[in-house]
Design a protein around this nucleic acid. Sequence first.
DNA 1: AATGAATGAGTGTTCATTCAT
DNA 2: CATGAATGAACACTCATTCAT
Lengths: 190, 190, 190, 190
Amino acid sequence: MPRPATDKRERLADAALDLAYRRGFARASIADIAEHAGVAAGSVYYYFKTKDDVGQAVVDRLGERYVSATQRWRDLPTPEERLVALLGLYLDDADNIRALGCPLGSVSAELGKHSPALGAAAGQVFSALIDWAAGQFVELGFTDAAARARAMHLIAVIQGAAALSNALDSGEPLQREATHLERWIRRSGD
Amino acid sequence: MPRPATDKRERLADAALDLAYRRGFARASIADIAEHAGVAAGSVYYYFKTKDDVGQAVVDRLGERYVSATQRWRDLPTPEERLVALLGLYLDDADNIRALGCPLGSVSAELGKHSPALGAAAGQVFSALIDWAAGQFVELGFTDAAARARAMHLIAVIQGAAALSNALDSGEPLQREATHLERWIRRSGD
Amino acid sequence: MPRPATDKRERLADAALDLAYRRGFARASIADIAEHAGVAAGSVYYYFKTKDDVGQAVVDRLGERYVSATQRWRDLPTPEERLVALLGLYLDDADNIRALGCPLGSVSAELGKHSPALGAAAGQVFSALIDWAAGQFVELGFTDAAARARAMHLIAVIQGAAALSNALDSGEPLQREATHLERWIRRSGD
Amino acid sequence: MPRPATDKRERLADAALDLAYRRGFARASIADIAEHAGVAAGSVYYYFKTKDDVGQAVVDRLGERYVSATQRWRDLPTPEERLVALLGLYLDDADNIRALGCPLGSVSAELGKHSPALGAAAGQVFSALIDWAAGQFVELGFTDAAARARAMHLIAVIQGAAALSNALDSGEPLQREATHLERWIRRSGD
DNA sequence: AATGAATGAGTGTTCATTCAT
DNA sequence: CATGAATGAACACTCATTCAT
């Protein structure tokens, strides 16, 4: 028994994220998104006032994905393992990242150029992710400032590795940096 | 003394790069680019067969910028200083990077989604930059493989720092990672 | 005690007339009208089969307004005063007329181009108004033919004055023609 | 040998005026106008920046028509005859006026509701026409103020007669008021 | 060598209308 | 009775591209 209203809006947001990730937001037409979601073209504007609103939904969806991922890792016994799980998220998706970059990184970079508001919204997703990682480092005994610095380093390197893997069309940078980061994380606990 | 035809082509490529960096390639119309370059709109198609060709010129221009930058650093006495000069290139441009990301990174990411050919071309610019950096590390005594690994790490972290600075609209990540990298580079020579 | 269904229908017709007068019928969307009337958007089609039907209701409403106005003037002692009261209706509304023209005139002109049926319906409102005015002139001693000619002149000049006041965005034409017409009416009784 | 550029723009303006007069401006789509002018749909935006600009061209065209009409009457020997020629313009077009109203009156009324700027522009056409008529009354010996009052009366009555003929779908009001006005004009010269 | 005129395909968006509930 | 959800057709507008000159 499908819940019609929310369901379609979610399918549209998912389709929009998928197309924005694969083709770029600017090149994903409303008609494409609707078709991808199995919804009539005109219906998009029943759920979203404007294409920029669709962009906002894309950012929201992106945020939810990372939030739900970190929640899935709650039960992992140690902060190290939770941080390494984040690396795993990227390694498990290595093929897509090589082909299209990090979903969060590449989509938010484009949306930031599309409109400042969307850029700011995407920035909050990054902030939340950094906050989560900082929390893990705090658990490892770092001060708030040191934990935050480490979290930013972690996210920056992941982003850079994903971007470079995409640019070079090679799994090497991501693989290599992930290996380094894992050692660096495990060393953090000592 | 009329300027050679190359002049207009270059102005167009520069204008295209500028607009692609600031607004995104998809959102930079041929008419915009022509106006930005002070060239008649229809003339773009005298110099470029298609908009994708303009994209190729954008990538070429990006490549030239990095090549000419590394050449400017040729006279620096040590490899360490040359590698640090690369960091300086980013730190000197910190405001733009915060607002728009790394020109090479953000433009090539979008172009990679635009067409595989452009993505591959942008990948070669990254490759060249990595080769240059690897050369410096070789001079520092690293084996080819180790030098290449270090070069990839350097470029990846710079890219990630720039991307994160842009996403968070903050100079902090770029500043911080650059400081770390500088220490790391100087340590490499010991 | 729930309002009768007629209530909503009337509110919709009023809202439609108001919006058609202010923005034009073509530019007044069904959704706008419903919102203006405080009614759910989909409900409009419970009361009206089509937008043209809403247009018909607009014309009806316009007719009722003039009928009820002339009925209000029934108790005025002389035909002259009743005819002058019609002028007063316009003078009292001079600001709206300057900004938007005569409601009857401007709305019926647009509806006439929208569909012949609506144009004919609007024509009947004019006919009724002319009949009423002619009745007053008959009371003043004119033959049927002369009374009707005078009535048509009266309505024509009022319409023209309102149209010109609207076009020039000035109260002058309406004011001036009303003054003339009042003298002309009062002279008619002699 | 057709002059391409101006020619197409003029054909578009003519087509737009024709359709705005017959269907209303809001109901005349850009595609309709282009087809009516024998021009490709997308081409309209080479000549006009926006549909409102097309509306401005419609108003301009309307103005030109009245200007050229009054210039055609320049050689008429007396002001009375020139003023009567204006009535003739309407009487010669009685069928259209009955079916669609006065082109200037009905189009400018709608455009005034479409945008204040277009309303103001249309108002200037009325002003120019009034100025012309006032000039004729000045030649007949009236003071500037009296001439202007008479001119406004003349235009108002013509507008009202046209509007009423259209509303009633009858030539009678226009015919009758024109007859009255002609006598009134000829009396003015005495 | 260079361009202004022109366009068709496509974009985001609106809206009258339908219908299951 | 009444309506929220949904849609297809149409709309104003953009733009990469062509081409005569």
